[in-house]
Write a protein that binds this DNA or RNA. Structure first.
Lengths: 191, 191
DNA sequence: TCAAACATATGACCGAAATCATATGCGTTT
DNA sequence: AAACGCATATGATTTCGGTCATATGTTTGA
């Protein structure tokens, strides 16, 4: 939850906006306006590769922040695209940075935020380091990466959706996963 | 590097320890003592899944921090096991947290350290998202990832050393890289 | 409500990278 | 100097996942 952060920032430095599916909060290389809080909906943090295809770097869901690292850079380094109608609050960069230096509580909360992000990236890197599509898929599911569509999940863990579907099928056949519905998979009960 | 941090912490709040392969720095659900700096060796951050098998979440190497998030939780949420004889420094949680709140310089340095890590991880993620071994190798070299042995470089970018050598050979043949020595490659002058 | 877009799935085929094998260069260590 | 470990390097074979094709279910919005 980002309430702790929000409450330390004067309302004049906060800017709420609504986005519809497909709309962008910002684009890569836009000048950094600030960091964002997702009140509702979902925002995809993604980067367009030089080859043209898009890789999802993070999926910001209700109650989470995104673009925290923008405080340390002049330009956003990825696109933020709404994938589910969202309400988003922007915290002005300048005001936030100023208060970071002055208010220990805010600084502490901010540190926690960054530490959590680092943790997430490390886990993603670890998952990507798994060569076998089957094993990678299993670990990713175990770590709760499969929350939305399988296609999205597949790109997040560096697989084509076909390879991902095949891996899921294999894992179900092997009894290591259970299909709970169309496009829905869960870990079996550790009975 | 964590020297900047260490120098701002009184030695009484620092605890150096040596670990041998297989020994644990901490176990999941242990009360959090603090965050750790790896001077040498390697520490595996891993978690036992409910299914029983162990998932590696991160591999902490020399010059890096781990368990940063422990500052914000009472218990460690994974095991830290030595996988290569290691020297590790523990920064006492209470003292570090106290100083973070009181000393803006430390807070700033810590924030920057974490932010830098975020940037690095994102760059690595981008590199890993490049499917072609040739292109991935080229980008990785461009980003300065090839500093040590090629074998180590190869594993860092998710390739076998054989595939990496072949990619380097191809890139040299195509004139996109120049071999400056045995196991040494550089970008050609953009003349 | 109807079409378009998207997601779920699976099969066939192919190619790139992993694997296996081999050889040599280089720096220690004994 | 000889032996050993490690890195460099490349060739042959295999395998796994990408690409392409196809079909159907589901959501969305016009």
């Amino acid at each position: 939850m980002f309430d702790a952060l929000i409450n330390m920032i004067p309302p004049t430095a906060l800017h709420q906006s609504d986005y519809r599916k497909g709309e962008a909060v910002f684009w890569q290389d836009d000048p950094t306006r600030g960091i964002f809080c997702v009140e509702s909906g979902q925002i995809n943090l993604q980067r367009a590769m030089q080859s043209g295809h898009v890789v999802t770097m993070h999926r910001a869901t209700a109650g989470t922040l995104f673009a925290e690292a923008s405080l340390y850079s002049d330009r956003y380094h990825c696109d933020a695209v709404c994938i589910e109608p969202a309400s988003v609050i922007c915290i002005e960069k300048q005001e936030f940075t100023r208060r970071l230096a002055q208010e220990p509580d805010l600084s502490l909360a901010y540190g926690k935020l960054l530490a959590t992000q680092v943790q997430t990236y490390r886990q993603t890197l670890e998952i990507l380091s798994i060569k076998s599509a089957r094993d990678r898929t299993l670990v990713a599911v175990s770590c709760g990466y499969l929350s939305g569509p399988v296609t999205e999940f597949a790109t997040r863990i560096g697989l084509t959706h076909e390879a991902c579907y095949r891996a899921l099928r294999q894992l179900c056949d092997a009894g290591m996963l259970i299909q709970t519905g169309r496009g829905k998979y869960a870990l079996p009960d550790p009975a």
